[in-house]
Simulated scan of single mutants.
Amino acid sequence: MPRRSYDHYCALSRALDTVGDRWSLLVVRELCSGPRRYSDLFADLPGISTDMLAARLKDLERDGILTRRKAGPRTSTAVYELTAAGAGLRTVLDALSAWGTPLLGERRATDAVRAHWFALPLGRALAQRIAAGTVTVHIGESVFHYVITETGLSHHDGPAAVADLVLHLDLNRAIAIATGAESLADVLEDRAR
C-alpha cells in the first residue's frame, strides 16, 4: 500500500506523515516505558486488530521510530523498543496528554483503561512536587517508576532498584490525581500519617 502524505512542505505535516496514522502514537505511548513484546502491545491496545498492530509496527520501524529485536538468543520472540527518534516523541505525548486531560470527563462504561496510561499525567504531578529523585508507583498490579531530574523526567516499567518515594494508589485515586480532582500533596499527606 503506498504511503499517504499531506504533501505539504511543513514540519508538522512531515511529522504527521510519519506518526499521524490511527494507533501510531498509542503504540509509541506503550513503548515509552520500555521494550514490549507484540502480545503485550496487543493486550494493552484494546480495540486494535492484529493486522493493524502489525502494520503500525512495520511502518514505525521503517520510519526509524522503533526497532525490533529478538528477546533472547534462544527465542524467536521479538521485542519492540523506541529509537532515539521515537523517544523524542515523549514530549509530544506529554503535551498531548496535558491538553487532553481536561477532555477525559467521566469514565464511560465502554472506556477501556490501563493503569500505566496515567504515567504521563502522574509524572507531571510528581515533577511539580519533587525537584529530583526516583519514585516507584504501584497502581493495583501495575508497577512503574519515574526518574526526575532538573532536565525532565522519564518513566520505566517495574519498580526502581532504589526509590526515594514509593506510592501505592488504587486506580480511582490515580485517575483523580491525573485529572486534578485530587492533589498529590493530599496523597503525600495521607501517606505521612
Results as ranks from 00 to 15, higher is better:
S97P: 00
P121T: 09
T149D: 11
A78M: 12
G86Y: 10
A174C: 09
T77C: 05
E30M: 11
Y9T: 04
S49A: 05
H138F: 06
L25V: 01
A161R: 13
D63W: 15
R29C: 01
A125C: 10
A160C: 03
T18L: 12
R173E: 15
A55F: 05
T67E: 15
I148K: 08
S33D: 13
T136C: 10
L66K: 09
L103Y: 03
S24W: 03
R129G: 00
L60W: 13
V187P: 02
T91N: 11
G105P: 01
A95E: 10
E141F: 03
I139L: 07
H116A: 06
M1S: 12
A127K: 10
E182D: 11
S13M: 05
C32K: 04
G180Y: 01
G47L: 04
D94K: 04
L184W: 05
G133Y: 09
V162P: 00
S39W: 02
T151R: 15
V92Y: 07
A163T: 13
T50G: 13
V27F: 02
A78H: 13
I175A: 09
G180R: 04
K70A: 14
D157Y: 11
L165E: 07
T134P: 00
V28L: 09
V92T: 12
H168D: 14
G180P: 02
L188Q: 09
V166I: 14
A109S: 08
A15V: 07
F42C: 00
G158S: 05
I175S: 00
E61G: 09
A161S: 13
G47Q: 06
G72V: 07
L82G: 03
S24G: 01
D63H: 15
G34S: 11
Y6L: 14
S142A: 15
L96K: 06
L184P: 04
D164L: 10
G123I: 01
A174S: 07
L89S: 04
W99C: 02
R124M: 08
L12E: 03
P2E: 15
R37K: 12
S24M: 00
A181V: 01
S183E: 08
D186S: 15
E106L: 11
D51L: 11
S142P: 00
I139H: 03
A178G: 07
G123E: 05
